[in-house]
């Protein structure tokens, strides 16, 4: 399979605080990479570096040989090929669901309204939210908002999708409806990088799992490698935090 996203010796710090300390990662087209690790280890920062929301101190991020980070004028186009969904609900509150979804395609890709709306309705249908198209975000539940946010990202036809703990702020009964959507995207062969604390989901969706700690990749492998045969002591103790003994 072809490599699509390449991260080389990525280093990132906030003032004196070093957050990412030399990360190398190569993602193949259609691969689903899940990133796990303790809170504060730099997972969100890592994803944000991948679409240029954070500038970096050293290293390089490139998408199909186009440089994304370090950010410059020439990186703008490559960045549009990366979609991202955040943990907090970030829909535009003054726009209806349909307007939220069609804004970027119409303004960035200059697509015709009718055509963009056509695709938007198809995607809404797929996540079961067509009936909400004229509602405003505040009239939706958290799980519904996150599904809309996914659709909004898909409308830009991204080559890589980044998900940063998209279910972390949701009530437990809404987690599944969102994760099902992401699972179906994985089945379609989309390239995705997913940060999550849902280990059962990670196991189901991932081609490869990355375990990060202290700004470094400590261990990586298939779900089976990571969950059944963890090699490092740090990963073993991290996994223990998800099980309970009495």
């Amino acid at each position: 399979m072809d490599e699509i996203l390449k991260i080389e010796q990525l280093k990132k710090s906030f003032d004196d605080l070093s957050v990412l300390d030399g990360i190398d990662l190569s993602v193949k087209k259609g691969e689903v990479v899940v990133i796990v690790g303790p809170s504060g280890c730099g997972k969100s920062t890592f994803l944000r570096c991948l679409n240029g929301l954070e500038d970096i101190q050293e290293g390089r991020v490139s998408l199909e040989s186009e440089v994304i980070n370090p950010v410059s004028k020439s990186t703008v186009n490559a960045r549009k090929k990366i979609g991202m969904v955040f943990q907090s609900y970030d829909l535009f509150p003054h726009k209806t669901i349909l307007q939220n979804i069609t804004l970027a395609p119409m303004k960035v890709h200059k697509r015709k309204k009718a055509e963009a709306e056509g695709e938007a309705l198809q995607l809404l249908e797929r996540v079961g939210l067509v009936s909400k198209k004229d509602n405003y975000p505040r009239q939706l539940s958290g799980g519904q908002k996150q599904r809309v946010a996914i659709v909004r990202a898909l409308m830009m036809h991204p080559e890589v999708l980044l998900f940063d703990e998209v279910t972390a702020a949701l009530d437990p009964e809404m987690v599944r409806e969102v994760l099902e959507v992401i699972l179906s995207l994985a089945k379609e062969g989309r390239t995705m990088l997913i940060v999550t604390h849902e280990m059962a989901f990670a196991k189901a969706v991932a081609d490869r799992i990355i375990f990060m700690d202290g700004g470094k990749i400590i261990e990586q492998g298939t779900p089976d490698d990571i969950f059944e045969h963890p090699k490092t002591e740090r990963l073993q103790s991290f996994l223990k935090t998800f099980t309970y003994d009495r």
Partner: peptide, 10 residues
């Protein structure tokens, strides 16, 4: 709001 707009390519 700024970030998600930027992430959409606006």
């Amino acid at each position: 709001q700024y970030e998600s707009s930027e992430a959409l390519g606006l």
